[in-house]
Design a protein around this nucleic acid. Structure first.
Lengths: 349, 349
DNA sequence: ACGCAATGATTAAACGATTAATCTACCGAC
DNA sequence: GTCGGTAGATTAATCGTTTAATCATTGCGT
């Protein structure tokens, strides 16, 4: 049993310098009254010894663990890397660590994950809830990232506006018949996006929605979406509600000999990792994860600071929706019989 | 300042039941000597009060924080969701929490991230190093997930064997000229995969390697890889070293009118989220993340248990490479002039 | 010269859980 | 009858940090 105590602690520094622990603590934290020269000496000695304060000791005394939780309930969500990155960055900047809890599985797993975090003493948590789940209030402040229309939402991308931007973009390109491709109508996010698209349609335009999950229940997983047929029916633009669906649409169309964007445009949502890489690169709408994470974390931290840590409180923030940014690439172009408008693709080719 | 102490602690339970804290502690941990009936009563009362042990108190006393670190240095790596999921699952099963530290940026950022974790008192950490970086030994046990050929590697997928499997698969389909598409020749992982492919070639087959990053430095980011030309040169199979490159290859070929898999086959690595979704679905080779994570975590935990927590020790494991699994889908098919071999795609269509 | 304030440091009490050491009955054996 | 053993509980120390309270010294105004 390795009973060797690791590195130096306050009292080692204190005795080594012939002062009291309190003074060392004060010198390092800059809180109490310590003469500048002694403080300097202490800091120097501490650095020299490679002193690392014990979170456990500090947490025990202050009641603050310095850790936040991040609950990502959607299985292997491709947004995860960006989100985790942004959250971790914002949390680090605020002096917090991030404990993850990925609750693949059902709602009970989500609750379990939340409990695990609470047991580990997180001061608050950020939750991206799974489809239309209400977050069962944990016994600590909770920031929710979902949709502006979700009750209890703290902050989220303005999916609705993102949808409108897509619609405007397609309208500018002269498209009239648009097929919206979504996964599941129960997702708040997807509903907002679809609603936004519809709200941005102009006179003479119309849109139909195709829900993939429903289709797959009928025809089997991985089935064809029959998009080439839709092109023949007169659809010229396919607005997917996520880049994953957009990718599926794009490859299916290409596979069936439909030229994108000449014969049909494809757009997505989220600007996932592959979006700039595929050919043609995907026109999409990106969340400002950095801003979202900053707002979520700062509101969360603020709530912790004022209300303390043991209130199952849903965190609110001043700004509950962050603009999405349209990124025009090559997968969207003018509708067939239109004169060439000055598109702003990144690679005019 | 919210000075209200949260939930009940041992002494509250103790006084409430008229026993000592020690007895309560013993009853709940099952360690000391407590009569079964009293233990039962204590457990009941604790549950009733919703007692959650303070990690801080426990950590301070035992010197064990119950937390591991996970360092993911590659920017927005699409493997992250699966890996994080698997690691978190294995760690949870072993009674640990997982603190993430995503060090986007250079090597110094990686070191900083490691230090942050150490300051938070992790007992050990799992690191997926960035390209050919040697992990600067942190002051705690470290498990490295990279490649069997990386010095100090703890456990990883058998990328070499995965490459061989791809080569065999393509050989079975009658392909002779193969273009290997990689990103960066300095990646240990990509080198192993490419080496594996070459080692699996049979008589009469040959392979050339295309490094995308190098090409992009010359022609600009997002440039065409010129794969259609390669097809005309006689290449019938494109073996990408990651699904991201495979996706790029697939869409570029389709865009240029090359039928996949009829005129050319495309394979990838990693079975990323989009691989089953694109058309044609991608033939690829998957890592067994669950097993890798289990081995990494169990070796790490074992090392912590025996060597203690304050040794900058690289963790070793019995099994340092885990087999990859070939997943045949529709993007690979028989080489042009060959008789139809019985392929085993999931959707014969 | 006396009191008051400011400065710079120390003392000591927490925080909550763990655990070695100790104490108290009580039972059986010699 | 005394001694040893033991089950079942308690005592008290400890982990490392923070912080309110205290103490000592010096300077300064009146």
């Amino acid at each position: 049993m390795a009973q060797t105590r690791p590195g130096p602690n306050l009292s080692r520094i204190a005795t080594s310098l012939g002062v009291s622990v309190a003074t060392v603590s004060n010198a390092l934290s800059g809180k109490g009254r310590v003469s500048e020269q002694l403080a300097e000496k202490i800091r120097g000695h501490a650095a020299e010894l490679g002193y690392v304060p014990s979170q456990a000791g500090r947490a025990l005394r202050t009641g603050r663990s310095g850790v936040l939780g991040l609950v990502l309930p959607d299985i292997a969500n491709p947004l995860f890397p960006k989100l985790a990155q942004a959250i971790e960055f914002a949390a680090t900047a605020a002096g917090y660590g991030v404990l993850i809890a990925d609750s693949r599985g059902d709602v009970s797993a989500q609750t379990e994950a939340i409990n695990r975090l609470v047991e580990r003493g997180v001061e608050g948590m950020v939750i991206v809830p799974r489809r239309a789940t209400r977050v069962s209030a944990a016994s600590c402040p909770v920031a929710v990232i979902d949709t502006a229309s979700t009750p209890g939402n703290t902050v989220a991308a303005d999916h609705w506006q993102g949808g409108r931007d897509i619609a405007s973009h397609l309208a500018d390109l002269g498209h009239q018949r648009i097929l919206i491709i979504g996964n599941n109508p129960e997702s708040n996010v997807q509903n907002d996006r679809a609603g936004g698209i519809r709200s941005g349609l102009r006179d003479g335009m119309n849109a139909t929605t195709l829900w993939v999950e429903k289709l797959e229940r009928e025809r089997g997983s991985g089935c064809s979406l029959g998009l080439a047929d839709k092109v023949r029916e007169g659809y010229t633009a396919f607005a997917a509600l996520s880049d994953l669906q957009a990718l599926r649409a794009l490859t299916e169309l290409q596979r069936d000999g439909v030229d994108v964007p000449a014969a049909a445009s494809v757009t997505g949502f989220d600007d996932l990792i592959w979006s700039p890489v595929v050919t043609p690169a995907l026109t999409t709408v990106a969340m400002d994860m950095v801003t979202i994470a900053e707002i979520a974390i700062s509101s969360l931290v603020e709530t912790i600071r004022t209300s303390g840590t043991r209130e199952g409180k849903l965190v609110a923030s001043d700004i509950d929706r962050v603009p999405m940014k349209l990124i025009v690439r090559q997968s969207s172009g003018p509708s067939k019989p239109m004169p060439k408008t000055p598109t702003d693709g990144e690679l005019p080719k």
